[in-house]
Amino acid sequence: MSADAERLVAAALGLANSGSRVEDRYWDAQLAQRIERLLDTGHPQSIHDALDRLNQTDSEAYGALIEAVETAAESLVLEVDGQRWDVLLVAAPVVAWTRFRIPSGPIAADTVVSLAAHWQAHVLARDVRFRMAPVLYSVDQLPRDFGELRRLTRRLGQAAIVPGGAAPRLDLKSLPETADMLADGRFLIAAVAVPQDGPLFRWQLPESGEHASRVACLEQWITQARPSIETLLPGCGFECLLPDAFHINLREADRRVRPYAIKAAVHFLTHALDLEPEAIRATIAPFGEDRPDEYRIGLSLGEEEDVAQGVVWPLLGAESEADDPSPLDRIRETLREAGVTDVRTWTDLTEPEYCEDCGVPLYPNPAGEVVHAEMPEDAEPEGTHFH
Score class of each variant (00 low, 15 high):
Ala5Gly: 04
Leu8Gly: 00
Val22His: 11
Val22Tyr: 11
Arg25Pro: 04
Asp28Ala: 01
Leu31Cys: 06
Leu31Thr: 08
Ile35Ser: 04
Leu38Thr: 01
Asp40Gln: 12
Thr41Leu: 13
Pro44His: 06
Ser46Leu: 03
Asp52Trp: 13
Ala61Gly: 03
Ala64Trp: 06
Ser75Tyr: 06
Leu76Arg: 05
Val87Thr: 03
Leu89Val: 03
Arg101Phe: 14
Gly105Lys: 10
Ala108Leu: 12
Ala109Leu: 12
Leu115Trp: 03
Gln120Lys: 03
His122Ser: 00
Leu124Asp: 02
Val128Phe: 01
Val128Met: 01
Val128Ile: 02
Ala133Leu: 11
Ala133Lys: 03
Asp140Ser: 11
Leu149Asn: 02
Leu152Thr: 00
Leu156Gln: 00
Ala159Gly: 12
Pro163Gln: 10
Arg169Cys: 12
Leu170Ala: 09
Glu177Gly: 15
Leu182Arg: 06
Ala183Gln: 02
Asp184Ser: 15
Gly185Lys: 05
Ile189Val: 15
Leu200Met: 13
Pro206Thr: 10
Glu210Phe: 11
Arg214Ile: 03
Ala216Glu: 14
Glu219Thr: 09
Gly237Asn: 04
Gly237Leu: 02
Leu242Val: 02
Asp244Leu: 05
Arg251Pro: 07
Arg258Cys: 00
Lys263Gln: 15
Ala265Gln: 01
His267Trp: 08
Phe268Arg: 03
Asp274Phe: 12
Glu276Thr: 15
Thr283Asn: 06
Ile284Ser: 10
Ala285Met: 08
Phe287Gly: 08
Asp290Ala: 06
Glu294His: 13
Ile297Leu: 09
Leu299Phe: 07
Leu301Trp: 14
Leu315Val: 03
Glu319Asp: 05
Asp324Ala: 15
Asp324Lys: 10
Ser326Thr: 08
Leu328Asn: 10
Gly339Ser: 14
Pro352Lys: 05
Pro352Arg: 04
Pro352His: 07
Tyr354Asn: 10
Cys355Leu: 08
Asn365Cys: 00
Gly368Ser: 12
Glu369Trp: 07
Val371Arg: 14
His372Glu: 11
Met375Phe: 03
Asp378Tyr: 00
Ala379His: 04
Glu380Ile: 02
Glu382Pro: 03
Thr384Glu: 14
Thr384Met: 13
